[in-house]
């Protein structure tokens, strides 16, 4: 998988090089023919601008953060070079267009991040989430597939903002908890999610007393607990930890729910911050 990422990185770099190559190449061909005094239909060098624009648009498309200016460059190349106009498309316009495409490429690289990876596109797990799931794999291995499915449903419903359903799902999971110890970390996570979902569903503020994880749960928590003097942070960190815990339980024990969980990966990654 890492090898394919490396290959993809190389092909992206080649595509980035192709943008100035095709655009300035087109302008260069036009200049050469003009210097040699040979009449050349401007549509031939203009093909280079269209190809360069399409590559730039593709590079913008594969980034998680989209650049609408780069995405629309093929339209401009068509307008500038292929729509019939009264004025002739000169060398100056071609050079300016090539410079503009190169500036847009630099802007894309520095302002719109790296091209999308399988992680950012929701095709595989990555980053802190992957590490956390691997670390907690053994701790959640004894969970039944039904409980894991409930965990997946609760996480997905919560990420969708369906807080009523998330609260209901957490309540059901708590009732169906088949463990001899009723206060396992996972059950506590369901309790915390139910509390938060109920509050969110009714748009209620943080209560004075609220559920948190116990000290002995800390090895299973994705985010360290915060000092007790900051109630807001403690309250919300408990929710983040609870959501990540149910995500891990679902991922490790319910393979059929993994595509749904992958679709929520961006939200799960946000919970680490």
């Amino acid at each position: 998988m890492e090898n394919s990422d490396h290959l993809k990185g190389n092909s992206d770099r080649l595509l980035e090089l192709a943008v100035p190559l095709f655009s300035f190449g087109g302008a260069l061909v036009a200049i050469l023919f003009q210097m040699l005094g040979i009449s050349l239909d401007f549509h031939y060098p203009a093909t280079g601008f269209v190809i360069a624009s399409c590559i730039l648009a593709y590079l913008a498309w594969i980034r998680p953060k989209k650049d609408i200016v780069a995405l629309t460059t093929p339209i401009y190349s068509f307008i500038f070079f292929f729509l019939p106009t009264d004025s002739e498309t000169g060398i100056l316009l071609q050079l300016l267009y090539a410079v503009s495409l190169t500036i847009l490429l630099v802007r894309l690289k520095y302002r719109f991040g790296k091209p999308g990876t399988a992680v950012s596109l929701g095709k595989k797990l990555g980053g802190s989430l992957k590490t956390y799931i691997e670390q907690t794999h053994d701790s959640f291995s004894g969970i039944s597939p039904e409980a894991a499915h409930s965990a997946a449903v609760v996480f997905v419903r919560f990420s969708e903002g369906n807080y009523g359903e998330a609260a209901q799902g957490s309540g059901t999971a708590l009732c169906e908890g088949e463990t001899p110890d009723p206060v396992t970390p996972l059950m506590r996570a369901f309790s915390i999610i139910r509390e938060h979902s109920t509050l969110l569903n009714k748009s209620l503020p943080r209560p004075v007393t609220y559920l948190t994880f116990s000290e002995k749960d800390s090895p299973l928590l994705a985010r360290p607990t915060v000092p007790a003097h900051d109630d807001d942070m403690e309250f919300y960190t408990a929710l983040d930890n609870a959501l990540l815990m149910v995500f891990s339980a679902a991922w490790n024990n319910s393979e059929r729910d993994r595509p749904h969980l992958l679709a929520c990966q961006a939200f799960a990654q946000k919970l680490f911050t």
Partner: peptide
């Protein structure tokens, strides 16, 4: 209809949801 949420909870799975 809008639910009061923290900004962190807003994600692309919530597209179409009214929020406060």
């Amino acid at each position: 209809e809008a639910k009061t949420v923290r900004i962190k909870l807003i994600n692309e799975n919530m597209v179409g949801k009214p929020v406060r």
